[in-house]
Amino acid sequence: MLAARDVMDRSYAEELDIPSLASVAHVSASHFIRQFRAVFGETPHRYLQRRRVERAMFLLRSGDLSVTEICFEVGFSSLGTFSRTFSAIIGESPTAYRRRGPLPQVPSCFAMRWARPSEHG
């Protein structure tokens, strides 16, 4: 499970499917989904969405890319899905989140941990 999660962390912007992730974990696709949720507390799909949103949060407040460019940069294939997923996880739209301004000048690991979206809001 850790190896599959590592692939998701490294390759979050790529198109990842359950069968290929399950093969990394050396289990069947259905077993992979059940085990991933048991180990990490969320489905592989939700984990990947959260990981993509986490990266988008950083890009929205630290660069000049448009929301659409960020959407595709982090691996979403549609702006509507990106905006809906971002809003569901963060509680505000990508544009509203960007209006908060640039990230504070602290080590990025602290800033990202502080801002990391959680399953509990």
Rank of each mutant, 00 (worst) to 15 (best):
M1A: 12
M1P: 14
M1N: 10
L2Q: 12
R5A: 02
R5P: 04
R5N: 04
V7P: 01
D9F: 06
R10N: 08
S11K: 10
Y12G: 01
E15N: 06
D17H: 07
D17K: 09
I18P: 02
I18R: 05
S23H: 13
H26F: 13
H26Q: 14
H26A: 15
H31V: 13
I33R: 07
R34M: 06
Q35P: 00
A38D: 15
F40G: 11
G41T: 06
G41M: 07
P44F: 05
P44K: 03
H45T: 12
Y47A: 09
L48I: 08
Q49T: 13
R50H: 08
R51L: 10
R51S: 04
R51Q: 11
R52C: 06
V53H: 00
V53I: 02
V53S: 05
F58E: 15
F58V: 14
L59M: 10
L60I: 00
L60G: 02
G63I: 07
D64H: 08
L65F: 14
S66M: 03
S66F: 07
T68R: 15
E69N: 08
I70T: 08
G75V: 03
S77R: 14
S78F: 07
S78P: 07
S78N: 11
S78V: 03
L79S: 11
F82R: 03
F86I: 06
A88D: 15
I89A: 05
G91Y: 02
G91D: 00
S93G: 09
T95G: 09
T95H: 05
A96V: 06
A96Q: 11
A96T: 11
Y97C: 01
R98C: 00
R100F: 14
P104S: 02
Q105H: 14
Q105A: 14
V106W: 15
S108C: 09
S108H: 11
C109R: 12
A111V: 11
M112P: 03
R113N: 13
R113V: 09
W114T: 15
S118P: 05
H120M: 11
